[in-house]
């Protein structure tokens, strides 16, 4: 059972790294932010699997914090960061 968990954790990790290509390619800032969304799903899945593999249930708390941080970073980006840039563009 544990070997399957390990295999799947590595598989999802590889998926996550391939998806980072999208972050480098862009083209818009929003495409790059999709990485934050990705970490709140793939990252959480990897952490859940790791919690079982390592038998360290504390990793479940890490998974919780991951998805919370993804929300906060996303909201800050959408409501603040991207907006300021827009205003800068208008002024220049």
């Amino acid at each position: 059972m544990n070997s399957l968990n390990q295999l799947l954790a590595v598989f999802i990790l590889v998926n996550l790294s391939i998806a980072l290509v999208r972050v480098t390619r862009g083209p818009t800032t929003a495409d790059r932010l999709l990485a934050a969304l990705l970490f709140s799903t793939s990252g959480v899945a990897i952490l859940l699997l790791l919690a079982y593999i390592e038998e360290a249930l504390i990793l479940l708390d890490v998974a919780l914090i991951f998805s919370l941080l993804a929300v906060i970073s996303g909201v800050v980006f959408a409501q603040r960061a991207w907006r300021t840039k827009e205003e800068k563009n208008e002024h220049s």
């Binding site: 929003a30 934050a36 969304l37 996303g74 909201v75 959408a78």
Partner: peptide, 10 residues
């Protein structure tokens, strides 16, 4: 809830 809210905002 996180991804639903985030995708709406983005």
């Amino acid at each position: 809830v996180a991804s639903s809210t985030l995708s709406f905002l983005i």
